[in-house]
């Protein structure tokens, strides 16, 4: 299973009829088992790119190839849970095939077991994110998409969720695509980093990290970050 995308442009017209370019030229490819990271400044068009890659947005120039039967699990920037269904129902609705063992295991890893019967309005943002993550993984996805899963959480919470995401990604062979504007998250979680320019986003370069996630020491992470910082991305 492989994702190949060649996008040559994406523009939209706002209500006033003005044309805005969101994406420039972006080419990327990702294999099953790899974690790709779309990294770029806030508002550069990462989420738009993600919507194209997930098939939600078909109005663009270029071509995306991804197996048509691929099951997609997606964590949106806001959790997008159904407010009128409990946590467990939210997950079971998206993943009708999930069995009790798998569900319990997911709830265990994400520390959600106590919240099964709660409604989304009773959850904090951090909890709701984890429910969204559980939902995305419960469908046993071939293609996991995470749109800023750690944004607006405090540092401790973000670090714990990052650890949980790493554990869950390790547990299944799939294509994973993560969007973030945080270099630290990108370096800790990604195998291939797609570095994007400011809007309209174009691909500046692809950076592969060969050392497996679990073997990366703090020193490795610092080294990679220094490497990337030297590229002076924001000014290119």
């Amino acid at each position: 299973m492989q994702l190949e995308a060649v996008i040559t442009g994406k523009a939209y017209r706002n209500a006033a009829g003005e044309q805005h370019d969101v994406l420039d030229k972006v080419e990327l490819s990702l294999r099953s088992g790899e974690v790709g990271v779309l990294f770029g400044p806030s508002g550069c068009g990462k989420s738009t790119l993600l919507r194209i890659l997930s098939g939600l947005d078909r109005d663009y120039q270029g071509h995306v190839s991804r197996p048509s039967q691929a099951r997609i699990g997606m964590v949106f920037q806001e959790p997008r849970l159904l407010p009128w269904r409990s946590v467990e129902d939210n997950i079971r609705l998206a993943a009708p095939g999930v069995d009790e063992a798998k569900l319990s295991a997911l709830f265990d890893v994400l520390e959600l077991s106590a919240h099964r019967s709660h409604f989304p309005s009773e959850l904090s943002l951090g909890l709701a994110r984890r429910v969204a993550l559980a939902r995305a993984l419960a469908v046993e996805p071939d293609f996991l998409i995470l749109d800023e899963p750690l944004a607006s959480l405090d540092d401790a919470l973000a670090a714990r969720l990052r650890q949980q995401i790493a554990t869950l990604i390790e547990g299944r062979t799939m294509l994973t695509l993560l969007v973030t504007h945080n270099l630290d998250d990108a370096v800790r979680l990604g195998d291939r980093l797609f570095l994007l320019s400011a809007r309209p986003a174009r691909l500046l370069r692809t950076h592969s990290i060969d050392r497996p996630r679990s073997a990366r020491s703090e020193a490795d992470i610092r080294a990679i970050r220094t490497d990337l910082a030297r590229l002076d991305l924001p000014n290119r």
Binding site: S54, G55, L56, R71, I72, G73, M74, F76, E78, R80, L82, L93, A94, A95, R135, V139, I145
Partner: peptide, 15 residues
């Protein structure tokens, strides 16, 4: 946003 969620997770129409 919820429509998109249903699309991504391939909810059948009736559901």
């Amino acid at each position: 946003a919820l429509d998109e969620m249903a699309t991504v997770f391939a909810f059948p129409r009736g559901k």
